[in-house]
């Protein structure tokens, strides 16, 4: 009886795992195979004559290369640095000074941000960036992303900060450090892993986003990869599938690398974080 139950449980488990694996892997199959076809279509098959020509052709396209290796890098890296910096300082202050309602504050911010970052807010954001003279500039995109990512970054960072024992800071102060020295020499080193998480999270978010650069940037030579793939798709009305797939693969690689890095270093999971 127990054996039957055990076997059934094993079979059920295996079936469940197989279905889940297939469901999540199959949509990605095309992305891995199509770039190596000499004549890619929307259906999936093993390339009979695997080729790297598609990548060569992508690298010949100055616009696309620039979008991926220059523009996306500038925007994602810029937002990463700025978000991490602002969130770390802000979260530290929130964790260590007493402000009325500060616990609710972060929650309200998160809810607020998920409300305000929709496509409707694109209109005022567009006009705001225009007034600031930052339309069609990388900085404008970076600032808007930072504003949007900040609440969640604050939320996660504050959690990190609260897990740091206060005794380190207290002893630094007792030993005659001023507050800025304490911040630089004690707090920042101890929150490095948290900053890393926030930074990577911000990078991945900006790297993948489409709507904000699409609206805020005007000239093709500043467009990031997300919008460049889009214009590949509609160019001449008929997508050049071989190039799109090769480009898309190149485009996901940085995210893949970052994921593997985080997973290896910390294990990709929620730590304390969003748990109420």
């Amino acid at each position: 009886m127990n054996l039957v139950r055990f076997v059934l449980a094993r079979v059920g488990f295996s079936a469940f795992v197989a279905v889940i694996a297939a469901a999540f892997a199959l949509p990605l199959l095309w992305l891995i195979l199509a770039p190596f076809h000499d004549q890619a279509t929307l259906s999936v098959s093993l390339p009979t004559n695997p080729t790297l020509d598609n990548f060569r052709a992508v690298f010949d396209n100055q616009f696309a290369v620039r979008a991926l290796f220059v523009n996306s890098m500038i925007q994602a890296a810029g937002a990463m640095v700025l978000t991490t910096l602002v969130a770390t300082l802000g979260a530290y202050a929130l964790a260590r000074i007493h402000l009325p309602g500060r616990d609710v504050f972060v929650y309200v911010l998160i809810l607020f941000s998920s409300v305000v970052t929709g496509s409707a807010a694109m209109v005022p954001v567009f006009l705001l960036i225009f007034r600031m003279g930052l339309i069609d500039q990388h900085l404008g995109v970076i600032l808007v992303f930072t504003g949007g990512l900040l609440p969640v970054a604050l939320f996660i960072m504050r959690d990190f900060m609260q897990s740091i024992p206060r005794s380190y800071e207290e002893s630094a102060l007792v030993n005659g450090a001023n507050q800025w020295q304490m911040l630089r020499d004690v707090v920042l080193p101890m929150t490095r892993s948290g900053m890393m998480v926030i930074g990577i999270w911000a990078f991945v978010n900006v790297w993948g986003s489409f709507l904000i650069p699409f609206i805020l940037l005007r000239s093709p030579d500043k467009m990031p990869a997300a919008t460049a793939t889009y214009s590949f798709y509609t160019e001449a009305g008929t997508p050049v599938i071989t190039l799109i797939s090769a480009y898309a693969l190149l485009y996901v690689i940085p995210v893949l690398v970052l994921y593997l890095f985080v997973n290896w270093k910390y294990g990709f999971q929620f730590f304390g974080g969003i748990k109420s």
Partner: peptide, 20 residues
């Protein structure tokens, strides 16, 4: 490379902020 509608949208945004 986009559609006619996308080009019109691009012009509207460009010209509303004085570029293009």
């Amino acid at each position: 490379g986009g559609s006619d509608e996308a080009l019109q949208q691009q012009y509207a945004l460009d010209l509303s902020v004085g570029t293009g």
